[in-house]
Design a protein around this nucleic acid. Structure first.
Length: 326
DNA sequence: AACTCGTGGTC
DNA sequence: TGACCAAGAGT
């Protein structure tokens, strides 16, 4: 492994100036208040910011403080997370909130790291932003910037480990949170996955891939698994303005949430159909009207259904079913 | 270390 | 359409 050249002081200064001009308009990132930063860090992981923002706004209305989150039930938490995906994150966040209530707010990255759902990235982001601790926050953006700047061809955990060493050597004592956010914003806006705009990049003078034709080949991609097709069938039973739903069993996708009762095989004409994707599975869900209440299901008034946690595809299926039955 | 989790957008 | 991607963590 060749030694890292790192970034010269004038280049680091250029990045901070770039961020001061271009990166400060994220409304949820301007506070040192731990709670909103915690929510945004957890909620927006693996989610497009534009998608996540409305969720964040609604969340902060429903759970404005760490106390309100800690005292909510898990069903309430899931109901307000629904549609975002990665529901385990919501459960971990809920558990973390309860630990924070009993133990107090973490006082270092190491303490943040102990909480469920808080890994290397999130602990670094939270400690640098809310505590001014000079620790790096290495997400996919920073890994990509690192891979291009240093022309590193590692993948997976090895790339991640190298990027963390690199980032640790760069993070300043002065405003480390802004530095980390600058690195991430640079990756999101300039050193983008499919195109690196080297012309406007403040790191360009010290980047080994700058303006090179192969710069988009970093980081090296791992070939993905082929997607499988999955067919699912669901019973629609409506009676006296109520509809039958079943709680999803432990171990299944979306465990603990609610969906139309699943049946093994088609049951007559399809009245609604939705498709969606989970990892490398493409799922097509079909809905059929049945005349008896499926075993294991519960009846809900439509007003109640609005407050249940349902997978996004089941929520869409419900809307199609309701418009079909009108 | 590879695999898994959810979803919506992009090209 | 379909593969790829996005402020990762847990197993």
């Amino acid at each position: 492994m060749p030694p890292r050249k790192g970034l010269r002081p004038e280049t680091r200064k250029a990045l901070r100036e770039w961020y001061a001009e271009n990166g400060r308009d994220l409304p949820w990132r301007r506070t040192r208040d731990s709670y909103p930063v915690l929510i945004s860090e957890i909620m927006l992981q693996q989610t497009q910011v534009a998608t996540g923002l409305p969720y964040w706004l609604r969340w902060m209305e429903r759970f404005p403080t760490i106390e309100s989150l800690a005292s909510a039930t898990e069903d309430e938490v899931l109901a307000h997370w629904q549609g975002l995906g990665y529901y385990r994150r919501a459960r971990n966040l809920h558990e973390a909130a309860q630990k924070i209530i009993s133990q107090g707010w973490p006082k270092s990255a190491k303490e943040w790291r102990q909480l469920p759902g808080i890994g290397d990235y999130t602990s670094g982001a939270l400690a640098s932003i809310t505590l001014d601790e000079p620790v790096p926050a290495v997400d996919g953006n920073v890994e990509r910037v690192f891979a291009r700047v240093e022309r590193c061809r590692l993948t997976g955990g090895k790339l991640s480990a190298e990027a963390k060493v690199w980032a640790l050597g760069l993070v300043p004592n002065d405003q480390p949170g802004d530095w980390n956010q600058a690195m991430m914003e640079l990756g999101a806006r300039v050193c983008r996955p499919r195109f690196a705009e080297c012309d406007v990049c403040p790191l360009s003078p010290d980047c080994q891939s700058s303006h090179q034709a192969d710069r988009h080949e970093y980081p090296v991609r791992i070939k993905s698994t082929k997607t499988q097709q999955v067919e699912r069938h669901h019973a629609v039973f409506v009676s006296e303005g109520a509809i039958a739903l079943a709680r999803i069993e432990p171990g299944a996708w979306w465990e603990g949430m609610w969906e139309f009762p699943e049946v093994a095989a088609p049951m007559g004409p399809v009245i609604a159909r939705e498709r969606h994707q989970v990892t490398h599975h493409r799922i097509v869900s079909h809905a059929y009207v049945v005349s008896d209440q499926p075993t294991g299901s519960r009846m809900f008034e439509l007003a109640q259904v609005a407050e249940l946690a349902m997978p996004a595809a089941q929520r869409r299926l419900l809307n199609s079913v309701l418009s079909e039955l009108k």
